[in-house]
Every structure is written in C-alpha cells, then in structure tokens.
C-alpha cells in the first residue's frame, strides 16, 4: 500500500461536512467529503453542486432514478471526471483532478456498473490484478522471475486465496473470466476490489441483473467486508429492499441534485423522492390512497 495520508486539516473537513444524523464513527474524520461538486458536460450540468460526506465504517447508499448523476458522482470521486468545480477530499487529502490510478493507490477500490473484468485472463489473474498497487511489477523482475518476483508473487497469492475463499470462488479460479455467468463475474469483480484491501470501497450497482438469491449473497459479502475488514463502503443500488436493509445512510439524487438524505427508510419515503421516481401525479394518487 502507499503511504497513508497525514492527519492534517481534519477540522476543515469537519466544517465542510454536513452534520450527519446517523453514523457509527461520527467523531472520526470522514473518509470522503465532496464539497459542492459541479460537473458539466458541454451545456449539460450532470451534477449541480452536490455535497456529501461518508463516515468511516459506514455503508452509504447513493440512490436515485436513472440519469440522476450517481455514476457521474462516483466517476468524479475516483478521478475519471475531474469536477468542474468543488472539491473531493479523501482521507483528508484533496484529490480533485488527480489521476484515477493515484486515487486507487490511496486505498480506494471500485466496481463498475457494466463489468470491467479483463477478458482472456483467468479469474485468478483478474483477482491477482487487484493486488497491483501492493506489488512491484517490472520488466527485469519478469526476466529474473525466479529470483526477483516469485516470492512476492506467492505471498500475494496467499492474500488472493483468502479472498477467493471469502467470496466462494474456489471452483472457478482457473476458468477464463468471460465464460462464467454474469452473477459470478460480478462477484469476481467485487473480489478484485476487495483483494486490494481498500479503506474505501465503491460499488456501482453490484446487484444489477441478479436474482434474489444472488442478491442476498452479495449483500452478505458486503456486510462481511465491513465487519471483517473494516471497510467503508459507498454503494449505488436500485434494489430498494437491499438499500434499506444494509445501508446506514443514503443520499437520493435527482437531476444532479440531492433531494433527500438520511436514514434509508425515511429518505426513500420522502415525498420528493417518491415524486422523482414515479412522477407527481402518481405520487399524489399514492398519497391520497394512503390517506
């Protein structure tokens, strides 16, 4: 792992962070603080001044209708789209506009909405790649493999095997990654993210297209990752049952703006959220039926 960021300017971050109701490590500095993020694509304002903070050890949900800017938000956090204005602070370090691979080496891992596994490689090699930041790859190390690389390779293999066991991927570890079912591929991608031992894990729709059983598996892995590895997790998810079951706190986005936040059940029941999801008239009708 790369060097940990020094503990400076926490106070400023605390000031930036919005006061949050529910969070486990409320007194510790937040893992992620996004302050007034704006992202424009030409004339389109995909994010219109979004501010949020993720506390250490929490499972934080980012929800919202399609096209509300959730993935854009994550792309801003991980350095793919530098924010047009506003700042992203990770572990107390300003990372706005820093390249994705450097953000990864700070201890941030993520998965993608549409799988981003490496075809033509085995499941094992894909997961081994998750250890990249912890290894020292070099051309000479490859040439002198037996003397320079083998020991490192085997040491990291042990770490990878722990995660393979944790994610129950033992029997497919040697399969080419493109031949296994989508549900398993999603799990492999999660394993690749976890094996980096991230301090902050971002999951972009980890359960898209899964059946109930597979969803429950993934939910269990996410909870275990938090319990056993003390990982802070940000999750984008459309399955509201999952969001309410595992998230400590959610932020609801719509058209690039935060329309609700807080405890999941309360936030999702918020009239503005209902309206964003099913439209104003349907929301009114539903409210009428309830009354």
């Amino acid at each position: 792992m790369s060097e940990r960021p020094t503990r400076t300017s926490w106070d400023k971050q605390e000031a930036l962070a919005r006061p949050v109701g529910l969070s486990k490590g409320g007194r510790e500095a937040p893992v992620l603080v996004c302050a007034d993020i704006e992202r424009r694509f030409g004339g389109l304002r995909a994010l219109k001044g979004v501010s949020l903070s993720v506390e250490k050890g929490e499972i934080f949900g980012l929800v919202g209708p399609n096209g509300s800017g959730k993935t854009t938000m994550v792309n801003v956090m991980t350095g793919f789209y530098p924010p047009s204005s506003g700042t992203v602070t990770l572990f107390g370090q300003d990372v706005s506009g820093i390249a994705p691979h450097r953000i990864a080496s700070l201890g941030v891992a993520r998965t993608f909405q549409n799988l981003a596994l490496f075809k033509g490689m085995s499941v094992l090699d894909n997961i081994m790649l998750g250890r990249h930041t912890a290894m020292r790859p070099s051309a000479l190390g490859t040439f002198f493999y037996w003397w320079w690389s083998q020991r490192e390779e085997l040491a990291h293999r042990r770490v990878v095997e722990e995660t393979i066991e944790f994610m129950q991927l033992e029997d497919i570890r040697n399969e080419p990654v493109e031949v296994i079912p989508i549900g398993l591929q999603k799990r492999v991608e999660l394993a690749r993210a976890l094996v980096a031992e991230p301090r902050f894990l971002i999951l972009d729709e980890p359960m898209a297209g899964m059946n109930q059983e597979e969803k429950e598996y993934i939910a269990r892995f996410i909870l275990d990752a938090r319990e056993e590895r003390n990982t802070t997790i940000l999750i984008i998810e459309h399955h509201m049952d999952v969001v309410t079951a595992i998230c400590d706190r959610v932020v609801v986005l719509s058209y690039g703006e935060i329309i609700a936040e807080g405890e999941p059940r309360a936030a999702i029941a918020d009239p503005a959220v209902v309206k964003a999801y099913i439209g104003e008239r349907a929301a009114r009708r539903q409210a009428g039926a309830a009354a």
Binding site: T78, G79, F80, A99, P100, H101, A104, S105, A109, R110, F112, A116, L117, F118, K119, G120, M121, D125, M128, L129, G130, R131, H132, T133, M135, R136, P137, S138, A139, G141, T142, Y145, S149, E152, E153, H156, R192, A196
Partner: peptide, 25 residues
Amino acid sequence: RSSFGRALAAVREKDYAAAVIGVNT
C-alpha cells in the same frame, strides 16, 4: 505469470479498469 505481464494485459483489455486498480496506463 508476473505482475508486469498482468498489468500490461490489463492496459490491453480495458484501460479505464486498469486505472481503477492502480495501473498507471
């Protein structure tokens, strides 16, 4: 079978995914 080769293969397959796991493409 080395990390160097895997990193290159990652760049070959998907450079954005390579970047997200910390490979300097």
